[in-house]
Design a protein around this nucleic acid. Sequence first.
DNA 1: TTGTACGCGTTATCAC
DNA 2: GTGATAACGCGTACAA
Lengths: 333, 333
Amino acid sequence: MNIYDVSEHAGVSIATVSRVLNGNPNVSEKTREKVLKVMDELGYTPNVFARGLGLDTMQTIGIMCSDSSDPYLAEAIYYLERSLRSHDYDAILCCTGYDLDAKQKYFELLRSKRVDAIILAGSKFVEMRAKDNAYIIDAAAELPIMLVNGYLEGENIYSTVCDDRAAMYQAASQLIESGHKRILYLYSSYSYSGLNKMDGYKDALHSHGLSVSDNMICQCTKDMEASRDLLLSLHRQGLIFDAVLTSDDSLAVGAVKYANAEGISIPDELSIIGYNNSLLARCTDPEITSIDSKVEALCTTTVNTLMGVFSGVNVPSRTTIASDLIKRKTTNF
Amino acid sequence: MNIYDVSEHAGVSIATVSRVLNGNPNVSEKTREKVLKVMDELGYTPNVFARGLGLDTMQTIGIMCSDSSDPYLAEAIYYLERSLRSHDYDAILCCTGYDLDAKQKYFELLRSKRVDAIILAGSKFVEMRAKDNAYIIDAAAELPIMLVNGYLEGENIYSTVCDDRAAMYQAASQLIESGHKRILYLYSSYSYSGLNKMDGYKDALHSHGLSVSDNMICQCTKDMEASRDLLLSLHRQGLIFDAVLTSDDSLAVGAVKYANAEGISIPDELSIIGYNNSLLARCTDPEITSIDSKVEALCTTTVNTLMGVFSGVNVPSRTTIASDLIKRKTTNF
DNA sequence: TTGTACGCGTTATCAC
DNA sequence: GTGATAACGCGTACAA
């Protein structure tokens, strides 16, 4: 079943069928109706492979993410897919894990599939060493690269980020201004976003005349049990803290578990702030005050920017979206 | 950069280049090396669109799911993608929502993209009325349809399901045997899986000589706040229950919140069992005993079955995977 | 307004 | 072991 069958049954040429198919106005109403009728009768569907070959596009975008089962990334992928589809683009998903070699391998794989663009979802795709990002910058010569919550400078590379630094600055400041003096900072990675968050925390302490001490900044696997255990052990080692600020909700959940386990009252004795405002923040008792990093806005903006790139509009290479602090029961403000 | 360029530079015909590309043994070692060298020098990558047109496949599978941000489905999609990719297949994601018309529309869309198979992830794709599933059964004449945790009978349709009925039967039985007499059943939908779960609950009561009463079976939006509020209102209306069995972890989280809010002691006064053993079950205090529906096994089995279908092996049209009860702190066994 | 003919880059079927 | 050539199905100049 192809365009020739349709043309034959309708008694017109394939060019006319193609015109009808693509809404070309240079077809008489009568012919159009005849062709549409035949298409319907034959149950004709254009062959996307042939179309792709001719136009050199299948209207498909590659989405890379380290782990789509992570609540934050799962949401991002959901919004990206929905948004892309509303623009008639398909999304090929590719979960890469965290290994640089694997990321590069999958990146090349997607390129070989001739996707129209690659979206790197999450902050795990920008490496510390510049040379490790060269493969992205090089590829951008051939197709647009979109970063969701990551920043990389380069021609044809577009970043949409949440203002993590400001978000953390604000959160830490509110903690300080509500009387907290010893804020423990818990983070899980040194990504672009991770570093910004930490800077926000440090800046807030500085601005308020507090000193930043290394033992109040702790790295922890992004896992609630790991976070709980780390806090338990720090507490037993005698570390004093009256607030925990975390780079991810899962770490904050661990903090709530720690407090509940030790009979520490929240927020009277300990305040806790999470990040991402995911489902997790609403699971615990008390529910967690969390920074909303605006995933949906981040994703739709990314897709809108990409559509701008496709249509040749001049779009910003970097868009920053402000976050919100969602106040719940783990803080006293 | 195409096969002609390579053939020209290597001084061979395109047929030979194609043979080298596809590992055809009828090429002399010398020629092969020469061609490979040229390919490397020119940075040649075969055009997947052209290949797709010729072979009528792009090695792509469509994955449909109602909402990929749901923790359970997000995990499923992760495992499906990973497993498909390990077999050199791409995954096109399509989030459909819950509306039947939309599901049908996207189903046809994926078919028009000529994917090699469609995976329906989650139990939301089998409708109560048989005629509403006709579109799936019809499509199966042309491509394999795989259901993950849903069952539909039909030629070229393959289902991989968790034994929800047995899982619920076991969970309810354990509650009864540990002294519970009034088990409230909370569910969110009438899907294939949803009905099986409910049957398991009812069967367990019957087997243990307890009567099933309608007011102990409550439907609730799949949302923890909705669940908490429903239980609060039931409680205040005077309904007595000593256990809550739920069709989803989010409902169980709501039950924990309800108990914590009312000062009801878990598990002494109230036992709670969730479903899916998702992240959510580990967020609360106390952590929730939950039925592990074995998503990973479900997904890898689905993909393995699909590969069997592709290779013409005789595969079962239905595979059932046993679940596990993961005991935590909301039950006293 | 409509039709012809070619290009897109493969794979596969022949001949040699 | 290798090469010429025909599909594959569409879009689109260009011609009519």
